[in-house]
Amino acid sequence: MCIVERRTVFRLPDARSGVLAGIAAGVVSTVAQVALWLVFTDAFPDILFRDARLAAAIVLGRDVLPPPASFDMVVMLVSTVVHFALSIAYAVVLTAGLGSLGIGASIVAGAAFGVALFVINMYGFTAAFPWFAAARDAITVAAHVVFGVTAAAVYHALSARRPPRAEE
């Protein structure tokens, strides 16, 4: 008589990998957005300064909104902190839902998450922060998709290094 023991292997969300995925996705999506601005608009760097003011206004209030859309060190620092805090929070939410998905499914989920994040940020949050309506464009959609895909891919790569836990 042969007894076969079955074990289900699963992965618990890895918060450290989620945080690192958020930081990586925040950097990569920003680089992608800047590259797209450079290729498809003639508004750089003004558009960067405008978007920095939009983000900084969440913390500093409407007084920092353009015009002028010019460089301001405080605005840039505050907007960077806001950007990465949100990037980490969003990536942790995304990665908590990835579970044991393979890389392909994770990337598809990340892209869908990026589109959903764009809709939530640019249409939902404008109830509280109406100035974000100015950033509703195809480049911002693309940057959000890049964010989701990068967060999912980095999380998958980092969490794959952890051994799975067996459910008994």
Score class of each variant (00 low, 15 high):
I103A: 11
A15T: 09
M73I: 13
I107M: 14
L86F: 15
T95N: 00
A135W: 07
R53W: 12
P67M: 01
G61S: 06
L48M: 15
A96M: 13
S29A: 10
I107R: 11
F71W: 14
I107Q: 04
P13S: 00
R53A: 15
F132L: 10
V74W: 09
D51V: 06
A109S: 15
R62T: 13
W37M: 12
D42P: 01
D14P: 04
L20D: 07
A43S: 14
G22A: 04
F84I: 01
S100C: 11
G102Y: 06
P163M: 07
I120K: 08
A69Y: 11
M122W: 12
G104W: 02
E167N: 09
R6Y: 15
A105V: 01
T41E: 08
S17C: 10
F10G: 03
T80R: 00
G99R: 04
A85K: 05
L98I: 05
V119F: 13
V78T: 13
Y123V: 14
V74C: 05
G102F: 04
T8L: 12
A25G: 04
V146S: 01
T95K: 03
A55D: 11
T126I: 14
G102P: 04
F10N: 03
A35N: 08
P67S: 01
F71K: 09
L86R: 11
A35L: 12
L48T: 12
A56Q: 03
R165F: 03
V39E: 00
L101I: 06
A112D: 02
